[in-house]
Design a protein around this nucleic acid. Sequence first.
RNA 1: GCCGGCGUAGCUCAGUUGGCAGAGCAAUCGCCUUGUAAGCGAUAGGUCGGGGGUUCGAGUCCCCCCGCCGGCUCCA
Length: 641
Amino acid sequence: MPQITVTLPDGGAKSLPEGARVRDLAAAIGPRLAASSIAARVDDALVDLDEILHDGARVEIVTESAAEGLSILRHSAAHVMAEAVKDLFPTATFGIGPAIEDGFYYDFGVDRPFNPEDLEAIEARMREIVASAVPFKREEVDRLTAHDRFEGQPFKRELIADLHESETISLYTQGNFTDLCRGPHVPDTSRIRAFKLTKIAGAYWRGDSTRPMLQRIYGTAWYSDKDLAAYLTRIEEAEKRDHRKLGKELDLFSFHEIAGAGLPIYHPKGARILRLLQDWLRPELYRRGYVEAITPHIYKTDVWKISGHYDFYGENMYFFQIDEGDGRVNEYAVKPMNCPGHVMIFDNDVRSYRDLPMRIFEFGTVYRHEMSGVVHGLMRARGFTQDDAHIFCAPEQVHDEIVAMLDLVDYVMHTVFGFEYSAEISTRPIGHSIGADDMWELATKSLMDACAARGLAYEINEGDGAFYGPKIDIKLRDAIGRTWQCSTIQVDFNFPERFGLTYRTAENTEAQPFMLHRTILGSMERFLGILIEHYAGAFPSWLAPVQVVVIPIADRHLDYSNDVRAKLEERGVRVEVYSDNEPMRIKIAKAQQQKVPYMLVVGDREAEGGTVGVRDRSEGDLGSRTLDEVVELVGKDDPRR
RNA sequence: GCCGGCGUAGCUCAGUUGGCAGAGCAAUCGCCUUGUAAGCGAUAGGUCGGGGGUUCGAGUCCCCCCGCCGGCUCCA
């Protein structure tokens, strides 16, 4: 019998009879591999276990434990869910059903929206399909056949029509459900052991708000019940960290229906944290050659007409009319950005190349009328404060400025907060953008070179830049692995052009400066939200609104407690005394719940010895300490030390 | 903005087929005088998100609005 030879990832070769399939190869290598194999990567393409191997193929078996193995499972789970929906809702039409991070979804066109009971019924039907262990069968068809097979399925037909000429059209069938699909899939439905449907949502067909809204069902799927349980636990843990919940429990901020959606009101403890952040960042910026500005919250509308925001983003701005009393009515707008003020500072004088770079920062509060469906606690508010800055510089300075910003990003995100982060560079949007080609080229190259100079890897988001310039976005990773976009560094050709900014060069010619926008924390609100969730409310001592609480054991220790408080306050420690007439353990429970870093228990022993009994919120009882030792303890995580 | 769900005391939540609005915690007042994660007793606390409608009667059913939650779209 003729033989073929395939190469394996370790460089080894394996001979197999002609016509052998991937599953045969897996079996030939070993029974354990065969049992956990899901699909294979053949010459870089993912294929089913049924795929017939050709001579000389490079083959890598994809197992359950591989990343692709999980996404194949989830994709297959989506097909099974679609089959269940087809069984229960015969008139349903089908959109797309991909695997996503941690799960999958499928979009359906149905006569009425799904409700939670439907979800249970669909899940029950899925379990039957899984129990029956039906195989996934692949077939390849021509375009016309594919079109005919999806009678009454407008979305599928649209997808087929949009497939490129050169693409192979493949269909997968399990049971009575056939889907247009590239594959691969798990061998049969029994592999989908551990899954759960999680939520229902509306979703526009192809993500286009002008097209029909379909019903999307989300689910998650894993190879074992243990993994599924771990995932569900992870979700629960994330919910416990929800900054909206903790913000309420820790008395940091609130929202009020009468005030309006998306407008956070900071209580003293929340305000304290924000000010602590600013008071730490401000000297750091001075050290790095920034100057601080304070600019108005409102401007006459003319400013926004010049900047272009009136036309581009007017719908998201707050406008109001003021009767000046002399027959004139002026229109003003609340600022959605801090740039104009900084531009006016630059433009207030004749500027020389010697003035550059000019780095102006501001903790600037802005208001944007975000669409009602998107406001989300502190993460997406309508009023928020940016740690904003604008750098006016010569073209040849752009590179060094970006490098300096990336250094600042690293200091803040990594050195101070310990976040891992990654970078993305967004390039010129094709079609709608302003500025000369060479400017875009120089700016984009500066961003890339700066990343390279700092050894910062980046991904490219082709055409995702702003209309006025390219940008670097920094995404950080929090304690439980979620990513958040905070820092952004943008090059702007729009403002200098529209406001006619110039400076005199060394050759005494006139030139237009480059303008760089940048935020490090991004929105202070959002960053606070991220920190709350990252620390699960247990702020490090240097950011804790209350660093220590003094806990008198009995009323007779109140005087000494107040002594301790006064002495610590004098040394800059943020301290409260729990003077309520309650047993100590109740005060400790309250302080623990408030996630206060240190509790100082004072009773007869401490009052006599002039000491305190220190309890660390996570370590527990640390024993007796002097106040000097407490001050040292409280300050030891401060990044400025 | 779109789809779906939700809104009851400061907080977390019960409230049956439409028939007198409840609990725990917190608060207040007593008692206890406390040694490392939740004592005891009493009192007070409500336009049931707002408005309109159906009904003898609405927290409960219907409509509109506001807000919140999960997504979609958006995030200059």
